[in-house]
Design a protein around this nucleic acid. Structure first.
Length: 858
RNA sequence: GCGCGAUUAGCUCAGUGGUAGAGCGCCUGCUUCACACGCAGGAAGUCGCAGGUUCGAACCCUGUAUCGCGCACCA
């Protein structure tokens, strides 16, 4: 085999291996397989989307789960795809049309416009999919789905028809959230309450029946005065109760200063503002309800795009709603009706997609009364579905308790068209046209009305039989209502079974300022740039290592660089092994005499496997990464391999040490594979561990190797000796002669290893400390001595030792303080007390050794 | 207003009752024959604050502050 390069070069490896995996059809799930099923459906990214770090985190986690499941002998399906993102995609294409052809979609007509959207989708829709491939995702691309696929789209419409027939879908005139930019209704979930600094405008109106009596009204939206059809006060409010039933004169518009009634309504909070509420039933949800209760007129003064219409009067017609606000205030001022304007902060609902304030608007829409809300709630309450972290269960539960009907119609062209047909006033709900002359409802369905079927309708019958319910869903908590909850309802309604057993909610990746990363903010680095820089494995490992379970993370590129460094570290450990000679992929350390270091390393490998498996059980991915990092970098490279450099020279130990390394590398490769698929696959082949893909190699098991505490003691002694050396500013490349007075017989056999660890010229075993100037450090394996003749002044060693003694005395005081407390000795468990006694003895013997050292310096 | 989360070293974060941890950054020294994407060593924290429980609290309880998120309200 060729020698490995000096540094791991991901770009030389990744595309080649990914192509090979596809060629080998490694990712394709077989519904006929006898293996137990493990399945995940991808949260479909928007077809307009580009990969963000959020996607990287989310999809890396799914890939980790998929790859580990394959290694554990499961038949794995990771089903990928994209959703059609109604508003976003239509907006993108419309913008392009405007820019390139100066046309609107209406210029083209519905059919031609949709043709353009499909063209756009064919051309650009694959971007995010290719990015997922670059990341190494092991999705079954033969099953890639799109929410507008013919079969899937038909199912969406069938579900509409079914729910309609069950009486759960209805059409009605309601107050909805209207987006004046996208020109469509939105669901409540798509409205983001956003703090907004504005003004509370106070103006006065005169009571018609009592000339000279004025009522003061506070409002944030003076531009809607023209749509007011009443004024409301709380009937319990002594200031105003007597006015109920009388009228006020509406100040605007000037050409229609109507008399509007004063009504009494409990909804009015008399603490707020002046306690007098102007009622605009056409443009406010609460006002609409008040209006309904009191039979007030609905005066719609707004056009769909947010400009005012003729009902607003000629001085306002045509103005944008925010220009109209200024104009209305100005007019009130001119009329002398404006009392004051005071700064006021309130929450304004913004459109999630278009980023503008939504407009409450009365319109006719389709609504869904959700099915299966109670079973969906119970499924999580009863742990049929488990959430990780489980705190999201409460959020989910609360939403379902207070669930409102879902506005599912959208005034768009791109999407699943509502399967309702009209002819001469007759209405039919069915997927296919009833025949000539029937006109289909022009609206389409909310994108989420299609993606709530994603967990089951992306699968054909055979696939579904094997892989539904899926094992786990990995997604962000920001779509717990949009998608997770709705999918549970759809699964229960249409499959009679929950869609997944576990839901893992990732954290949200934020930038340095703590802001959420998003495409629109443009604050997410391009993952492809990062991959080019550190490799897909480095990016994956780096991002997962800093993402604790379900906690938001602050992104720092340095963390990603660490991922690369780790990959390179392990690469070089393998390279070092390769330089020593032929690797035995089937090495069995138990067939060899093992050094205490080898024995202990194997026990640490066991402990690492245990730590990793436990962490996986709780979806603690950063813990898995940390366990790998600690074992590979610390136990394996820093300690074992350094010690092995001596043992390779020792014929009695060489074979056992090599076998141990071969064994450990074989297992680390597999443990690391889910996190770093490329480098592990490459090394698996390059080092001769196998010819098939590592992703089907058996997941490592705990073997039961016995630990050897002597190894720790030796490494710890080496660390202390290095510290001593550094204290005297002796550079690490200066090879010194050391003496060692061993505390136990075995220690003498390890001077070779210790010499390497200390970069010592020699370590000489002595039975007593020599006379003269010697620096010393007491360790568990004995007294390490550094003759200082000509190197350092004995007085400074005395000073150093005095410092050490002081530290030890503090520790002894701490332990003795506890042990001398009767309540501690009697109250604490026996083993804790015993442990403190051992600690005390340890410190005391160290103190003694240090005092001896001082004494010996004279 | 209700709920959730966070608060530990300069930074990013682990740590659920028994000697405060990691990585980065910083300082010092090293081109030691795998790796400078590296090696060795070091400095650095009254664990947000105040009470309480306990022999013992970063950890459990109560309160409180600050930041963030969600829900409700928002004239």
């Amino acid at each position: 085999m060729a020698e490995l390069s000096k540094a791991y070069e991901p770009q030389a490896v990744e595309d080649r291996l990914y192509a090979w995996w596809l060629e080998q059809r490694c990712f394709e799930a077989d519904p006929q397989s006898a293996k137990p099923a493990y399945s995940i459906v991808i949260p479909p990214p928007n077809v307009t989307g580009v990969l963000t770090l959020g996607h990287v985190l989310n999809n890396t986690i799914q890939d980790i789960l998929a790859r580990r499941a394959r290694m554990q002998g499961h038949e794995v399906l990771w089903l990928p795809g994209t959703d059609h993102a109604g508003i976003a995609t239509q907006t993108v294409v419309e913008r392009k049309l405007r820019k390139e052809e100066h046309k609107t979609r209406h210029d083209l007509g519905r059919e031609e416009f949709l043709k353009r959207v499909w063209e756009w989708k064919e051309k650009h829709g694959g971007i995010i999919i290719n990015q997922l491939k670059k990341l190494g995702c092991s999705c079954d691309w033969s099953r890639e789905r799109f929410t507008m696929d013919e079969a899937y789209a038909r199912r969406v419409q069938e579900v509409f028809v079914d729910l309609f027939q069950k009486g759960l879908i209805y059409r009605g005139v309601r107050m909805v959230n209207w987006c004046p930019v996208s020109l469509t209704a939105l669901s409540d979930e798509e409205v983001i309450p956003t703090p907004h600094k504005g003004f509370l405008y106070h103006f006065k109106v005169e009571v018609v029946e009592e000339p000279g009596t004025w009522l003061e009204i506070a409002t944030t939206r003076p531009e809607t005065i023209m749509g007011d059809s009443g004024v409301a006060v709380n009937p319990k409010d002594p200031r105003y109760a007597h006015l109920i039933g009388k009228h006020v004169r509406r100040p605007l518009p000037l050409d229609n200063r109507a008399e509007i009634p004063i009504v009494g309504d409990e909804a009015v909070d008399f603490e707020f503002g002046t306690g007098v509420l102007k009622v605009t039933p056409a443009h406010d949800k609460v006002d609409y309800e008040i209006g309904q209760r009191h039979g007030l007129a609905v005066i719609d003064i707004l056009n769909p795009n947010g400009t005012l219409n003729d009902l607003a009067g000629e001085e306002f017609a045509g103005l944008d709603r925010f220009e109209a606000r200024e104009a209305a205030v100005e007019k009130l001022r001119e009329l002398g009706l404006l009392v004051k304007e005071e700064p006021h902060e309130n929450n304004v609902g913004y459109s999630e997609r278009a980023g503008v304030p939504i407009e409450p608007r009365l319109s006719e829409q389709w609504f869904l009364k959700y099915p299966m809300t109670v079973p969906a709630r119970d499924a999580v309450r009863n742990q049929l579905i488990r959430f990780f972290p489980d705190r999201w269960e409460k959020v989910y539960d609360h939403w379902l308790e207070n669930i409102q009907d879902w506005c599912i119609s959208r005034q768009l062209w791109w999407g699943h068209r509502i399967p309702v047909w009209n002819k001469d006033g007759e209405v039919r709900c069915q997927v296919d046209s009833p025949g000539e002359g029937w006109v289909q409802d022009s609206d389409v369905l909310d994108t989420w009305f299609s993606s709530w079927l994603w967990a089951h309708d992306t699968m054909d019958d055979a696939t579904r039989a094997k892989f539904y319910p899926t094992s786990v869903l990995v997604t962000g908590p920001d779509i717990i209502f949009f998608w997770v909850a709705r999918m549970i309802m759809a699964g229960l309604e249409y499959m009679g079974e929950v869609p997944f057993r576990h839901v893992y909610f990732t954290g949200i990746i934020r930038d340095k300022q703590g802001k959420k990363m998003s495409k629109s903010l443009g604050n997410s680095p391009d993952p492809l740039d990062l991959i080019a820089k550190v490799g897909a494995d480095g990016l994956r490992f780096g991002i997962i290592r800093i993402a604790p379970q379900g906690q938001d993370i602050r992104y720092d590129e340095q963390q990603i660089v660490e991922g690369r460094n780790f990959c390179n570290k392990f690469w070089n450990a393998c390279r070092f092994r390769q330089i020593q000679g032929e690797i035995d992929p089937a090495a069995d350390p138990s067939q060899h005499e093992l050094s205490l270091f080898a024995q202990d390393l194997l026990a640490k490998l066991d402990a690492t496997i245990r730590r990793i498996d436990t962490a996986y059980d709780e979806y603690r991915f950063s813990e898995v990464a940390q366990a790998l990092y600690d074992f590979v970098w610390g136990d394996f490279c820093d300690r074992f391999i350094e010690a092995a450099k001596a043992d390779f020279q020792n014929p009695a130990r060489r074979e056992g040490t090599l076998a141990t390394i071969d064994y450990v590398i074989g297992r680390v490769l597999r443990l690391l594979h889910p996190y770093a698929p490329f480098i592990t696959e490459e090394l698996w082949h390059e080092l001769g561990y196998g010819t098939g893909s590592i992703q089907f190699a058996e997941w490592p098991q705990v073997h039961g190797w016995a630990a050897d505490a002597r190894a720790e003691a030796a490494f710890d002694a080496a660390a202390q000796a290095r510290n001593l050396r550094a204290t005297y500013n002796l550079p690490s490349n200066k090879r010194l002669r050391w003496l060692l007075q061993p505390s136990e017989p075995w220690v003498a056999a390890e001077t070779g290893v210790l010499s390497v660890l200390l970069n010592a010229e020699a370590i000489e075993i002595v039975t007593e400390r020599p006379a003269g100037s010697v620096a010393s450090c007491p360790t568990q394996i004995g007294l390490l001595l550094l003759p200082l003749e000509g190197i350092i002044d004995p007085e400074s060693e005395k000073t150093r030792l005095a410092g050490e003694i002081k530290k030890v005395e503090v520790e002894i005081k701490k332990v003795q303080g506890k042990l001398s407390s009767e309540s501690f000795v009697n109250g604490a468990p026996a083993e804790v007390v015993a442990e403190h006694r051992v600690r005390e003895a340890g410190w005391k013997s160290r103190l003694e050794a240090l005092r001896d050292a001082v004494a010996s310096l004279g």
